Simulated assay, not measured.
Amino acid sequence: MRIRLDLSYDGTDFKGWAVQPSLRTVQGTLEEALATALRVPSVRVVCAGRTDTGVHARGQVVHLDIAPESLTGSSGRRGDSPMEALARRLNGILPPDVHVRRALEAPAGFDARFSATWRRYAYRVADDPALVDPLVRSHVLAWPKPLDLDAMNTASRALLGLRDFASFCRRREGATTVRTLTELEWTRDETGIAVARVVADAFCHSMVRSLVGCLLAVGDGRRPPEWAAETLAGRRRNPAVTVVHAHGLTLEEVGYPEGAELAAQAERARNTREAMDD
């Protein structure tokens, strides 16, 4: 059977999502906890989006495949459903910087990575000394100059749509840098923090942090709004674009279709990635 887990984590003390020998990673920590909770030798999980070192998640989604008897055999005697029992056991094993929000049996055709139709990230910036709070220093970037969000949004609109984001990505050999960016908008939250809402079908390595770095240069007046479109048109990594720190970035939510479209989307996405990436 396939299980879906929704989880949150503080990425500060992790070396990113993906398992790496001798390093503390979110995937490695979760898989160890799952093996203990399910009383099996090992478990492998697949996530919706592999976050980099220091990046946080509020809405990460993963799936794992296990034998049904492994789930029922580890449920305990409290009367919880097997899924409720799994989430409870995991949260009792996991460290405080990872939390399973829910566990449920995945519908037919579900794939945490390939069934996803969009991912939503937020990047948070404190651009006023009065907004800099040491208590959230691991989640909000402190910026030394005030930002003009109108100019940043003007620049952002030129980046929307199906584009080649090679100018904003760290290339991998043979991998595509073409993505569909559906939302890129800056607003201020109730405290005054500048927040970028970034939504795309998928993201390539360092894409969001590079986009934010480009737009911060527009917002603090170092570059005109047109610079974002000019950089995009170059289709090669621009050394003038700063890749901002990871700690301001959070994976907020992942979107999936319903019903039969889950399997259809997974097949389309898998075929596309195999043809263009691997």
Rank of each mutant, 00 (worst) to 15 (best):
A122P: 05
R124A: 15
R124K: 06
V125Y: 04
A126H: 00
A126P: 04
P129Y: 07
L131I: 06
L131A: 00
D133W: 07
D133E: 09
D133T: 03
D133C: 01
L135K: 11
R137F: 08
V140T: 10
L141M: 15
L141N: 01
L141V: 03
P144S: 01
K145P: 08
P146I: 05
L149S: 04
D150M: 15
A151R: 08
M152A: 02
N153L: 12
A155I: 15
A155N: 04
S156K: 05
S156C: 10
A158R: 06
L160K: 01
G161H: 00
G161A: 06
R163H: 07
R163N: 12
F165M: 14
A166G: 13
R170S: 13
R171S: 11
R172V: 15
R172Q: 12
R172N: 04
E173Y: 13
E173A: 14
G174R: 08
T177F: 03
V178G: 00
R179T: 00
R179N: 10
T180F: 04
T180N: 13
T180Y: 02
L181K: 09
T182S: 10
L184C: 13
R188H: 01
D189Q: 04
E190C: 01
E190M: 07
E190L: 08
T191H: 11
G192E: 02
I193A: 07
I193L: 13
V195C: 10
V195W: 05
R197L: 15
R197Q: 15
V199W: 06
A202R: 12
A202I: 03
H205P: 05
M207I: 13
V208D: 11
G213F: 13
L215N: 06
A217W: 14
A217G: 10
V218F: 14
G221M: 14
R222I: 05
R222S: 15
P224Q: 04
W227K: 02
A228C: 05
E230S: 04
E230A: 05
T231I: 05
L232V: 08
A233N: 02
G234P: 03
R235W: 07
N238E: 14
N238C: 14
N238K: 08
A240S: 08
A240W: 13
V244S: 07
V244F: 11
H245G: 15
A246E: 09
H247D: 10
H247W: 04
G248S: 11
L251Q: 08
L251H: 02
